[in-house]
Design a protein around this nucleic acid. Structure first.
Length: 338
DNA sequence: AAACAGTGCAACCGCTCTGAC
DNA sequence: TGTCAGAGCGGTTGCACTGTT
């Protein structure tokens, strides 16, 4: 305490940087290199404090800074890393080339955090929070369909899900159909789990997808034909989704839908699968399946990631719900990320 | 067209932590 | 061991832009 400020504030300029100031700073650093921030402003002829110069350089002027909107892949990475690292923005930024900690922090606070809250997910713990979930948005969403409700099945407690389904069904003039189908589906999964405890997530995925495809041809989740199941690895599977297996009735279903074959975690939900497959598989799936319909928008068949980058906020929101369903593999040393 | 509200983002502030000396 | 500069962080502010009334 009582430390002197990094610079004498008297007479120093604050606020937005002018192009002239930027030019001076860039030219000085190109000549002398970054560092010595306390003396840099004077030597560079800038009426700024050293800290301001450092922040301007590191957050904006550095030549390797990537400008523009975050891609879906970047957003995915941020969410997954945040679930592990918390608000360690610099650690997250270190894994996103061209992005700064400040930029990521701002993006988190202005976009991702709000989206998670709308989805009923606590942005701090990444756990589902029923009190945060805006159920009304479910009913007005154009993405209201069985596949999305099936995702909710693993997120919400049974009472909340039943309430939501009743409201949805009433809204659709079909009080029983959806709920009945979901209940059947849950029973089916439980049965399948008992019959095939050594089964693979891939098999579960097929079962899950078949149920959906029978019910909703318009939102068909055709099971992709995977030439090699060993390719099913999760990209950046360091995220976690805390579920207490002892008190959450759906948690076993969820956990059973993740299989640790070869140490890999495989989410059952096909949109989660989408993140865990190779580019070749994405291409195969695009050709052979109806992922486009899941995403509720026309999509170029040749590039899933390009398509996602062009998706709407609602679509990102939907996909994020799957994105968060990861667990930390035991083999992962978190110290590597700290 | 104007006023207002909401949003996004660059930038700042105050503080802590870390490593060099 | 204490001091200092640099780095990092959470929180916040100010302003430009956009959408709504």
């Amino acid at each position: 305490m009582g430390r002197s400020p990094c610079c004498d504030k008297n007479g120093l300029k604050k606020g937005p940087w002018t192009p002239e100031e930027d030019t001076k700073l860039i030219q000085y650093i190109q000549t002398h290199g970054p560092g010595n921030w306390r003396t840099l402003p004077k030597n560079a002829g800038l009426q700024r404090c050293g800290k301001s110069c450092r922040l301007r350089w590191t957050n904006y002027l550095r030549p390797d800074i990537k400008r523009g909107r975050f891609s879906f892949e970047e957003e995915e990475t941020i969410i997954q890393l945040h679930s592990v690292l918390g608000n360690k923005w610099s650690a997250i930024a270190a894994r996103l080339p061209g992005r700064t900690d400040n930029e990521i922090k701002n993006y988190w606070n202005t976009h991702i955090r709000k989206r998670l809250l709308r989805m009923g997910i606590d942005p701090v713990t990444h756990a589902p929070r029923l009190d945060l979930l805006d159920l009304s948005s479910l009913f007005t969403s154009p993405q209201l369909n069985l596949s999305n409700l099936l995702r909710l099945q693993t997120l919400l407690n049974p009472e909340a899900l039943t309430l939501a389904l009743n409201l949805v069904a009433a809204n659709n003039g079909n009080p029983d159909g959806l709920l009945q189908k979901l209940q059947e589906n849950q029973t089916l999964l439980n049965t399948h789990q008992l019959q095939n405890q050594n089964g693979t997530a891939f098999q579960h995925s097929q079962t899950f997808a078949n149920v959906v495809s029978q019910e909703t041809p318009s939102n068909l989740l055709t099971t992709p034909s995977f030439p090699n199941q060993n390719q099913c690895t999760i990209q950046g599977n360091m995220g976690h989704f805390p579920i207490n297996s002892t008190d959450h009735p759906n948690s076993q279903i969820f956990q059973d839908n993740l299989t640790t074959t070869s140490g890999s975690l495989i989410p059952t939900d096909l949109s989660s699968f989408f993140y865990g497959v190779s580019d070749q598989m994405k291409a195969d799936m695009s050709e052979n399946s109806s992922f486009d319909s899941v995403l509720s928008s026309p999509a170029p068949p040749n590039s899933a990631s390009t398509y996602i980058n062009g998706s709407t906020e609602d679509e990102k929101e939907s996909l994020c719900s799957s994105l968060l369903r990861f667990e930390i593999p035991e083999c992962l040393d978190l110290a590597d990320f700290m």
